[in-house]
Nucleic acid binder design. Structure first.
Lengths: 234, 234
DNA sequence: CGGAATCCTCTTCGATACTG
DNA sequence: CAGTATCGAAGAGGATTCCG
C-alpha cells in the first residue's frame, strides 16, 4: 500500500473517494477558497492581483496552487487580454462557467444568513453583483429586462437582465449601454440593497446618484433588493 | 490584538470575513465533509453510525464536531424516532432542507465528471438516489410521475416524482407504494444508471430484477439515466 | 508587476483508542 | 452505539524572497 517517494511524485490530489456526483463535484471545487475563486471569475476574467484583492487573506501561494489545480481540471484557463491591455488573466472555461448554478444556489441560500456587515467584514461591490444576479431568475419577479450599471466606490460593474427575467448576467466592468446607472459609496449602496435604507432617501440625501433613469427603472431595481436578503428583513 | 484565553473562550469559528452571500453560505457549510453530510441527511434522518457509514474516512471526532456546529447554526437538529425504534437520529431543519438546490446544483455539475467507479472508490446505492433526484426537475424530460423503489445490495431507497416532473423526492427507505421496484447489486445497477449497460440486458441476464412493472415504467426509468451522466457518455 | 518558491507557525484532519 | 480524547500528518496562512 505504501508507495516509495519517487523523485517526481505526481502529488496525488485529496479525494473523498466516493462514486457520487456530489462528492465528485466537491473533489474538484470543494476545497477552501475554491468556490470563492470561481465566484470572482464568474463576473469576468481577472488578473492574479485582482483575485488577491477579491479574496482577502488567501495568500499568494495558496491562490497560485488553487489556480493551477483548477487549470489542470479544465475549470480555469489562462488568457492574454487583447492589446493594448495585454495582461495575463484567468478566466472560466466552459466547464467552469457551468458552475454558475452552484454559485447561484449558494448565494440564494446564503442571502438569508447575511445580516448587516460586521466591523471586520471585508466589503466589495462586485460581490453585490453576484448576489443580485443570483437573486434574479425565471421564478423571481421584478426581473425587468435592461442593463443596470453601477459605480460603487469607483468600482464598476453591471447586471444585464434578458427577456422574461432569464439570461441574467453580471460582469465586473462598466456597462456598454446602461438603462440605469447607480453611483455612490459601498456602505450606502449595501444599505439600499439590503433594504435598510430606501433608494429614495439615499438619492435625496445625495449619497447615491442615478443617471439615465427611465420610468420604472428605479422600481425594478428596488424589486431586486427584495430578493437579496431573504426572509430575515421580512 | 492578542486576547487572553478566558476560561470560557467561545471558540470563534473560522470565517472568510466577507460580506457576501456566497461567502456567508460557505462559512456555514463550506468546510470539508459538511455538504456531504447534508447530502446524507437529504434522504432522511440518520443515526450517527449511519452517517459514519455514508461518509467513509471522516473520523468520529470530526463527524461529531460537524454535527454540533450544524446544530448550532440551525441546519441540523437531533430527534428521537418514535417507538419502537426510539433511536436518536439527526435530521435537517427547514433551513437545512433549503440547501437542497445547492446539493442539486453540485450533483448536476459533478455528474459530468463522474466516470466509471475506480477500484478505490466507495459505492453506495443511496448516493445514486441523490443523483437521480438531482437529474430530475422542471426542465428534465422523462420525469414521469410515480414512485420508483430500489433495493440495491440490500439497501432500500426510493424516488418519487410528482406531477410535471416537479416535486421530486429521494428517500433512503423502502417505498410505501412503489409503481416499479428494481432490485439487484450495486455494480450492475450503477452500470445501468450510467448507461454502460442497458436495463434490458441486465434484466435478461438476471442480475437485475423488476417488480410491478407497468407499461412505460421501464422507459421512464431509462429516461432518467440519460441525465445521470451528462455529456460524457454522449 | 506577476507569480512562484521557501520557511515557519498554527489549525484542521484523520485514524485509533478509549469511555459513558 | 454514541460519542470524547489523543496524537501524528497534512493543510492553511502569513511573511519574505526570488525570478522573469
Amino acid at each position: 500500500m505504501k508507495e516509495e517517494d519517487g523523485p517526481k511524485m505526481v502529488e496525488k490530489k485529496r479525494s473523498y473517494g466516493q462514486h457520487c456526483t456530489v462528492a465528485r463535484a466537491l473533489d474538484a471545487v470543494g476545497e477552501r477558497w475554491t468556490l470563492l475563486l470561481v465566484r470572482e471569475l464568474s463576473t469576468g476574467p481577472k488578473r492574479f492581483k485582482d483575485l488577491l484583492g477579491g479574496l482577502p487573506g488567501i495568500g499568494t501561494n495558496l491562490l497560485a496552487g488553487r489556480l493551477k489545480a483548477l487549470e489542470a481540471e479544465g475549470i480555469v484557463r489562462r488568457a492574454t487580454l487583447p492589446p493594448p491591455a495585454g495582461s495575463n488573466v484567468y478566466e472560466l472555461t466552459g466547464l467552469g462557467g457551468e458552475l454558475e448554478p452552484v454559485i447561484v444556489a449558494l448565494s440564494r441560500w446564503g442571502a438569508r444568513l447575511l445580516d448587516a456587515p460586521g466591523e471586520e467584514d471585508a466589503v466589495s461591490a462586485g460581490w453585490a453583483a453576484v448576489a443580485m444576479r443570483s437573486a434574479l431568475g425565471p421564478e423571481a419577479s421584478g426581473g425587468r429586462p435592461g442593463t443596470y450599471g453601477f459605480r460603487i466606490d469607483g468600482e464598476a460593474f453591471h447586471v444585464r437582465v434578458g427577456h422574461g427575467g432569464e439570461e441574467v448576467e453580471a460582469r465586473q466592468d462598466p456597462a456598454p449601454d446602461p438603462d440605469l446607472i447607480v453611483e455612490g459609496d459601498a456602505e450606502t449602496f449595501l444599505a439600499v440593497a439590503s433594504r435598510r435604507l430606501s433608494l429614495e432617501e439615499a438619492v435625496q440625501s445625495g449619497t447615491l446618484r442615478t443617471e439615465g433613469e427611465q420610468e420604472g427603472d428605479r422600481e425594478a431595481f428596488m424589486a431586486w433588493c427584495k430578493h437579496l436578503i431573504g426572509s430575515a428583513a421580512g
